[in-house]
């Protein structure tokens, strides 16, 4: 009993540790000159792609529970926060390493270039979600917490669009991320209530027998 509780909390920390491995690994490769060419740009892009991956996995937790009965909810906060920290690192790399804190260029980029505006807006929306990710906020906000955190669906669409608009040609990777984001949003908007109603009905039938 105690052992399983220890494992549960340890496994959450394991998600954090494993989650930061890609960032640490690519930083190590970059800092030791093992990324040829524009290493900072490569690093920046990898951080952005990993942020999207964590965001998609975070939003997949609920449908996976609904459809397959696999409950990963205890890892959801860690996955969401990993996504947030990857976005922070992605933006910091752009701001500090790539643009060398040239704020005129940065502000101009954010204001003038739609894909950066969209990326920045998605980042801004992610901040209140990260701040209210603690248990105290969840208790305090009650049902408003659920409403607030539905913003994550807007954020994933914004993030995937940011990636799709940033590339010079459409390649499979950004297209696939956008497709997965669209499926997740579509499920939440149109199918989830039906799936839950169907499950409830099936349970009721089973109970009646």
């Amino acid at each position: 009993m105690i052992a399983s509780r220890v494992w549960r909390s340890a496994s959450v920390w394991l998600v954090y540790v494993v989650g930061f491995v890609p960032a640490a690994w690519y930083f190590y490769l970059g800092a030791t000159g093992q990324i040829p060419g524009n290493a900072v740009k490569v690093f920046e892009h990898l951080l952005g792609v990993w942020a999207l991956r964590f965001l998609l996995v975070t939003l997949a937790v609920t449908p996976i529970r609904d459809l397959f009965g696999i409950n990963l909810i205890r890892y959801r906060r860690a996955l969401g926060l990993l996504a947030f920290w990857y976005v922070v690192m992605h933006f910091s790399t752009y701001m500090i390493l790539d643009q060398a804190l040239n704020f005129q260029v940065i502000v101009n980029d954010i204001a003038k270039r739609p894909f950066i505006t969209i990326g920045m807006a998605s980042f801004a929306l992610l901040i209140p979600l990260a701040i209210t990710s603690n248990s105290w906020s969840i208790r305090k906000l009650g049902s408003r917490w659920n409403s607030l955190h539905k913003l994550s669906y807007v954020i994933i669409l914004g993030g995937a669009l940011h990636y799709l608009m940033a590339v010079r040609v459409i390649t499979p990777e950004p297209a696939i991320y956008m497709a997965i984001a669209a499926v997740l949003v579509g499920y939440r908007l149109f199918f989830r209530s039906r799936v839950l109603a169907w499950r409830k009905q099936r349970r009721a039938v089973a109970m009646a027998r």
Partner: peptide, 18 residues
Amino acid sequence: RWSQATEIRIGEGGFLSP
């Protein structure tokens, strides 16, 4: 989608200050 006013010279500076 980006400024052409400046450029990163590959191989100059380090990873932390390209």
